[in-house]
C-alpha cells in the first residue's frame, strides 16, 4: 500500500527567520526515507489553507511581520479551526504558537485576538528569553533554542508540551513549555525543534498517517537516528 501525506507550510516567506523551515525538510525526508509520498504546499498571505492538509507547519518571525500575518490569519481562522477539530497535525513554533492562542496582549496593553485553537494567552514581557533549552516531554528530551519576550500562560484545562529542564519555556516561572490540543503542538523551541528530537518528529508523522488512513495502530519503520541523538546529547551539555 502506498501512503501519501500533504505537508502545508504556513507563511514560509513571512514567518521563517529562525530556521524553522528545517522542520519541513526534516518531516519530508523522514517520510521519504520510509517511502511515504510527500506533497508540499506553501501557503502565504491571501492563499487558502488546503482542506486535505495532513501536517501544517508554522514558524517564528519579526514583530513587524507577525503583525502583518495576524490580519491575514483572520481569513484562515475558520478553516484552521475546522482542521484542528478534525485532528490535523500542526506544529506551531514561537510567533505562530502565540498567534494560535486565545489572544496576545501587546506592550501598550492592546489585545489582539488569536486563532483560539490553543488554550493559551500571551502578553508582552519586559525581558527577552534567549538561550539553549532542554524540555522533558512524552517523546523524550527535546533540545532547542528559544528567543522570545512573550509570556504565555496556559488555561487551567491546557496540556503543556513539556516541562522545562533548562530555559524559560512558556513564561519563565511555572516550568511549563508549549501547549498541546487535539493534534496541535505549540512550542517556543527553534533549533529547529525536530532536528534533534527524532521521536517527536516521528510522532507527528505517525499521528498524520493514523488520521489519514484511519488506523490507530500505525507504526513507522525505524530509522538510523544515532546522529540526531548524538547531537541532542551534545546540545544538552551546552550552557544556556
Amino acid at each position: 500500500m502506498t501512503f501519501n501525506l500533504h505537508i502545508v507550510h504556513l507563511y514560509p516567506r513571512e514567518m521563517n527567520i529562525y530556521g524553522d523551515t528545517g522542520n519541513r525538510l526534516i518531516l519530508q525526508k523522514r517520510m521519504e526515507w520510509r517511502n511515504i509520498n510527500v506533497r508540499i504546499s506553501l501557503v502565504g498571505m491571501g492563499d487558502e489553507v488546503p482542506l486535505d492538509s495532513d501536517i501544517i507547519l508554522g514558524g517564528g518571525a519579526q514583530d513587524a511581520m507577525q503583525l502583518a500575518v495576524e490580519k491575514d490569519l483572520k481569513q484562515k481562522m475558520k478553516s484552521l479551526r475546522r482542521l484542528s477539530d478534525d485532528g490535523v497535525v500542526m506544529l506551531m513554533v514561537c510567533g505562530m504558537y502565540q498567534l494560535f492562542g486565545q489572544s496576545f496582549i501587546t506592550g501598550s496593553h492592546r489585545r489582539i485576538e488569536g486563532l483560539g485553537i490553543l488554550p493559551v494567552e500571551t502578553c508582552a514581557g519586559k525581558t527577552r528569553f534567549i538561550g539553549n533549552t532542554v524540555y522533558q516531554t512524552k517523546w523524550g528530551t527535546v533540545v532547542g533554542y528559544e528567543n522570545h519576550s512573550g509570556l504565555t500562560q496556559l488555561d487551567d484545562s491546557a496540556v503543556a508540551f513539556g516541562t522545562v529542564i533548562k530555559g524559560a519555556g512558556n513564561n519563565g516561572t511555572d516550568g511549563t513549555e508549549g501547549c498541546i490540543k487535539n493534534n496541535v503542538f505549540g512550542t517556543y523551541s527553534h533549533g529547529p525543534v525536530l532536528s534533534k528530537s527524532p521521536a517527536f518528529a516521528d510522532e507527528l508523522i505517525r499521528l498524520a498517517l493514523a488520521r489519514r488512513y484511519d488506523n490507530d495502530n500505525t507504526s513507522l519503520a525505524p530509522l538510523d537516528d544515532r546522529m540526531e541523538l548524538r547531537a541532542a546529547d551534545v546540545a544538552k551539555l551546552r550552557s544556556r
Binding site: 528545517g22 525538510l25 551534545v234 546540545a235
Partner: peptide, 14 residues
Amino acid sequence: GTRATDMAIRLKYD
C-alpha cells in the same frame, strides 16, 4: 566545532 553534530545532521538531511 562545538556543534559539529548539528552541522552533521544538517548535511544528512540534504
